[in-house]
């Protein structure tokens, strides 16, 4: 246990002390914030205003609450996955720079080593993501707070689940990497691509129909939708007091609060089960891969 505790501490320290690794992890959320700060927030704001009947004046606080909810959900949807991905690159870095040789020469079991990467990544991911959640809550409180206690609790649950998903997914992918070149390539693809395919940069409803169907198979999509629902429900309910229910449904569809899998609307419970199930599945795959590698190494 001491070995595991010490390895987790080492891995976490390395993530937060290695400026390169830490800032790479934050680059996607930062890009997103810059995009929102420069034009995306204005685009969403205009879109909301266009969807209300002409002449109807909405409170500024409500508009801010809607836009802020969307920012919060997009930011968390991205950072809860990209931060664990970058933190978990440590397992590849250790292989690339040969540090793994020293660790495997100690009496620590390979399974303990694998578990230490997982726990440290999860811990770093949770720390950074909860800091982001806190920052977003402060922003919403200052501009337009419409979240209920249940919404707050669900956002925290969604965040934890998504970090667990990101950790499990990155563990499975990073398992096969062993060079600095591969780290750069995968890091770039994840940083650039994940924000797009999970619907953080642009709502999935704006994607071509074929792409919408494809992303319907990705569990990360449902995490974004869950977060969006829990971050925007309060503000959308409030908006419902100003405009008809049909208009609210159209807005929900356009901002991905509703998502359809081959025409059928997916419920929030189903989304939660998909996310939790895929996380459990990926954790099982990671465990299995480590067992197989351990057996292969013994016969090498």
């Amino acid at each position: 246990m001491t070995g595991l505790k010490e390895l987790v501490r080492r891995n976490s320290r390395l993530f937060f002390k290695d400026k390169g690794m830490f800032f790479t992890a934050l680059i996607t959320p930062i890009i997103l914030l810059v995009l929102y700060g420069t034009f995306l927030a204005r685009v969403y704001r205009d879109a909301f205003l266009l969807s209300v009947p002409e002449g109807l004046m909405l409170p500024e606080k409500l508009i801010n609450g809607l836009v802020g909810g969307e920012i919060l959900s997009s930011l968390l949807a991205v950072s809860c996955v990209t931060v664990p991905f970058c933190a978990n690159m440590l397992m590849v870095t250790d292989r690339a720079n040969g540090n793994i040789n020293d660790l495997t020469m100690s009496p620590v079991k390979p399974s303990t080593l694998a578990l230490s990467y997982y726990i440290a990544t999860l811990r770093s991911g949770i720390l950074v993501s909860l800091t982001a959640v806190a920052g977003c809550f402060v922003y919403l409180a200052a501009t337009g707070w419409y979240l209920s206690v249940a919404d707050v609790a669900f956002i925290l649950v969604d965040t934890l689940l998504l970090v667990m998903f990101g950790t499990a997914l990155s563990s499975c992918i990073n398992f096969f990497l062993s060079t600095q070149g591969q780290i750069s390539a995968v890091g770039t693809v994840i940083s650039a691509g994940y924000g797009f395919i999970c619907g953080a940069y642009m709502p999935i409803s704006n994607f071509p129909e074929v792409l919408q169907k494809v992303v319907g198979f990705l569990p990360g999509t449902y995490a974004t939708v869950l977060l969006r629902n829990h971050a925007m429900n309060g503000a959308l309910d409030e908006l419902g007091t100003y405009i008809p229910a049909e208009s609210i449904k159209l807005i929900r569809d356009s901002v991905d609060c509703n998502i359809y899998f081959f025409g059928s609307r997916v419920s929030l419970l189903t989304m939660l089960l998909i996310l939790a199930g895929s996380t459990a599945l990926l954790m099982g795959v990671y465990l299995l891969m480590n067992i197989l590698r351990s057996r292969t190494a013994r016969s090498k």
Binding site: T2, E6, R10, R13, L14, K17, N99, D102, P107
Partner: peptide
């Protein structure tokens, strides 16, 4: 094969703990 961003003491305490 020690960690370059950690201090010498952090490196040694980690490796020592792996041996109990």
């Amino acid at each position: 094969c020690l960690d370059k961003v950690l201090t010498v003491e952090e490196n040694l305490s980690c490796r020592a703990a792996l041996y109990g």
